[in-house]
């Protein structure tokens, strides 16, 4: 990249050299360790968000109450910049958290005061896509299916768990996928909080020593490429899981994919 000689960056060619050095892959600050942290954080965040959003979404979809409120809140939450929310929570929460211990290599000693605000931001951002798709999934069900289930003597809870949830699973999963991709991307911003690991560490630290050939610009771009690869790989896995989990009876109705509102009306938002 000769044409960019005057901007002071070491050049994209350095990224290939960085990837070719095994020393950058292994060890506690290597690429693979960061990938592992990234995956652990993503898993914890998405599971927490799903534990809150799926039950609430099922109840809202079942009763039809509160949809306007939830849709409005979800839209407003989209407008909140992740970086601003993160810094807000760090300034408010971190001085009040006094846990200094760490746990293994994923949670280094002293990182908890920063990890909690970082993960909290991600949970807050991951809830809207899961919540919206869950209640949209329940509401898109044919009323006849619900009435038939109630007619056979099912209690409301049974209708929710045995009919509405399995039938709206494709949409719930698509919400989970959007949320997961968003969390993987936003984790790179979360690394703005000190001591929070993941691939964002390479990116934020790399940005701070841009001219360093080992920990600077090449590490930053390598981190970015790894995030993209990780996002695509995780999405492919979730796509597979979605196919395996979906009841064959639902998967047969081929029109579902086309009418899936998550596809075009409600695409993944990049927040990182």
């Amino acid at each position: 990249m000769k044409l960019a000689a005057d901007n002071g960056l070491p050049g994209l060619g350095r990224v290939v050299i960085w990837f070719n050095d095994p020393g950058n892959w292994w060890g506690s600050t290597g690429l693979l360790a960061h990938v592992r942290e990234h995956l652990v954080y993503t898993f914890v965040v998405v599971c927490t968000a799903a534990l809150i959003a799926v039950p609430v979404g099922l109840v809202i979809g079942h009763t039809g109450r509160g949809t306007t409120l939830i849709a409005g809140t979800s839209n407003a939450l989209r407008a909140v910049p992740a970086l601003g929310l993160l810094i807000f929570l760090i300034v408010v929460l971190s001085p009040r958290i006094h846990i200094r211990q760490g746990l293994g290599s994923t949670i280094p000693a002293g990182s908890v005061p920063y990890l909690i605000p970082a993960l909290l931001v991600l949970v807050i951002l991951a809830i809207p896509p899961i919540l919206t798709s869950t209640y949209a999934g329940v509401q898109s069900l044919e009323p006849a299916a619900r009435e038939a289930a109630a007619g056979t003597g099912m209690t409301p809870l049974q209708v929710i768990l045995k009919v509405e949830m399995p039938c709206s699973l494709p949409l719930i999963m698509s919400g989970l996928r959007s949320a997961t991709l968003q969390v993987i991307a936003t984790l790179t911003v979360a690394a703005y909080a000190p001591l929070v690991g993941g691939l964002g560490r390479l990116i934020v630290d790399g940005h701070q020593n841009l001219r360093d050939l080992r920990y600077g610009y090449p590490a930053m771009v390598a981190g970015g490429v790894s995030v993209a690869v990780l996002a695509l790989a995780v999405d492919a896995l979730l796509n597979l899981a979605q196919r395996l989990l979906t009841s064959p009876g639902i998967a047969l109705s081929g029109t579902r994919q086309r009418t899936n509102p998550m596809n075009s009306q409600n695409p993944v938002q990049n927040a990182g």
Binding site: V189, I203, H207, A228
Partner: peptide, 13 residues
């Protein structure tokens, strides 16, 4: 899927 922070610094190149 490319993080924006990285995009902001790859584009100058």
């Amino acid at each position: 899927t490319v993080p924006s922070l990285v995009m902001f610094l790859v584009l100058p190149e």
